[in-house]
């Protein structure tokens, strides 16, 4: 009898802890920044982001990171200039931290406060809307971060003495799954 009670207690404890510490893993991602120049439009894409989410007491903390040098705009010379301008050797990673309540994990639209660390600056973007589609345990999240070059105190790169525009929206496409 007591053995059964003990086993039940152990099982319920394990389940409680398991439920309270759900983890999420970034399965695949596409991050792309868009930059406008009077002479052309540029998109730099990275598929190298990794991410993890940990849920605890109804709150989930997420971290997504990608190497700055992993962004490819199709021109190695331009990418090297981007790394230099963004101080990518000194600060090689771009990281995004966010938190949301566990109950929002299944919402079609999720609003996030993001802390983005890039080029040695940490910038907070509040209440950004992201779309979520859940298919077979996979959570597809997409949205755009309205980043600006000046947010990160980056000197706007120039081509033929003309600087790029200040707007640098970052398109985010991610697929998360429960670990």
């Amino acid at each position: 009898m007591y053995r059964k009670i003990l086993l039940t207690l152990i099982l319920s404890t394990a389940l409680t802890f398991a439920a309270g510490n759900e983890q999420w893993v970034l399965q695949e991602s596409t991050l792309s920044y868009h930059v406008s120049h009077p002479l052309h439009e540029i998109d730099g894409v990275s598929h190298a982001a990794r991410g993890k989410g940990v849920c605890h007491e109804g709150q989930c903390d997420f971290l997504i990171a990608a190497p700055v040098k992993s962004f490819d705009s199709g021109d190695s010379n331009r990418d090297l200039h981007m790394i230099q301008a963004a101080r990518g050797a000194q600060f090689p990673m771009v990281t995004v931290r966010t938190r949301l309540s566990e109950s929002e994990l299944t919402s079609k639209t999720i609003f996030l406060d993001l802390d983005i660390e890039f080029a040695g600056q940490t910038v907070h973007y509040a209440h950004l809307g992201f779309q979520q589609a859940i298919e077979g345990g996979q959570h597809r999240i997409s949205g755009t971060i309205p980043a600006k070059v000046s947010d990160f105190k980056i000197d706007p790169p120039t081509l033929l003495t003309m600087p790029i525009k200040n707007e640098m929206p970052v398109r985010v496409e991610m697929v998360w799954r429960s670990a």
Binding site: R97, R99, D115, A147, D151
Partner: peptide, 8 residues
């Protein structure tokens, strides 16, 4: 966008 602050 707010710089150098901790949201969480």
């Amino acid at each position: 966008a707010h710089q150098n602050q901790q949201a969480t």
